[in-house]
Amino acid sequence: MGKKVKETFAHVIFFIAALTSILAVLLICVFLFANGIPAMKEIGLFSFLTGTKWAPNNSPASFGILPMIIGSIYITAGAIIVGVPIGILTAVFMACFCPKKIYGPLKAAIDLLAGIPSVVYGFFGLVVLVPFMRELFAKYECRGTSIITASLLLGLMILPTIVGVSESAIRAVPESYYEGALALGATHERSVFFTVVPAAKSGIMAGVILGIGRAIGETMAVIMVAGNQARIPNSIFQGVRTLTSNIVIEMGYAADLHRQALIATGVVLFVFILIINLLFSILNRRNEA
């Protein structure tokens, strides 16, 4: 093979490889929407999104996913309340307060937190958190598997994401900000919280949004601790079903319109995620600028 032919051939091969991810996103969009939209049409987009009753086996069956949308929002909001303050403060600790000697092991611990599979988290929630919450909130008729249990567990699961992104955002703030505040007589804590952290604001927000994406998309751990009742809850001690769990629990035996409605549930989840991704990349662009 001539040198020139070889060069061109390699160029083309690498180019095709680069196109793979574009192709993958296109395929995912096409197949999800093509399989989900017919069900939305048949059920009616409005009654699908705002219907409060999910009863695929009744006749006539009703496919309203509002309880699942609300479930996902409740649990994600709970995870944010638990995970975001702790995550950001831990990131501040890692970037500004951590003694050098123990930084290595602690960083490895954060990585490990990120690497633990969601089933293991779910199992831990099932055997530790669920009985604990049942005892603790017995007077509220908490059955253990509830919104609050799932929020706690998810809050723990999104910690490494928030800590990782926020820490690098804080570290990217020029040293002079910190030193300037110190020179004006501020304490270490005041300098960090009133000059460095505000300067890292948009990076920290990006970390939080990424964490929200993780929380909405989490499936296995949530199934194991959230109770999975497909109804709109009226207290945080009740069980709830998320969009993700709805798909996993029923896809195994669903057929026809029921199956399509589950795929349509996936489409709704996918759209949520796309919006979150968009927010994330807008924030990231702003950081780079």
């Binding site: 680069a18 196109l19 991810s21 574009i22 993958a24 996103v25 395929l27 995912i28 197949f31 999800l32 399989n35 990424l210 994406g213 909405i216 998309g217 989490e218 499936t219 993700t244 798909i247 996993v248 896809m251 795929i263 996936g266 989840l269 996918f270 995620i273 796309l274 979150i276 991704n277 994330f280 990349s281």
Partner: peptide
């Protein structure tokens, strides 16, 4: 331009939850 598009799609892919991948894999 293609590099930009590839970057955006790769970012999108890394944010998609695993259950959506599961659905896509099942369908495709």
């Amino acid at each position: 331009k293609i590099v930009k598009v590839v970057r955006i799609t790769a970012e999108t892919l890394s944010g998609i939850p695993s259950i959506v991948y599961g659905l896509f894999g099942m369908l495709f």
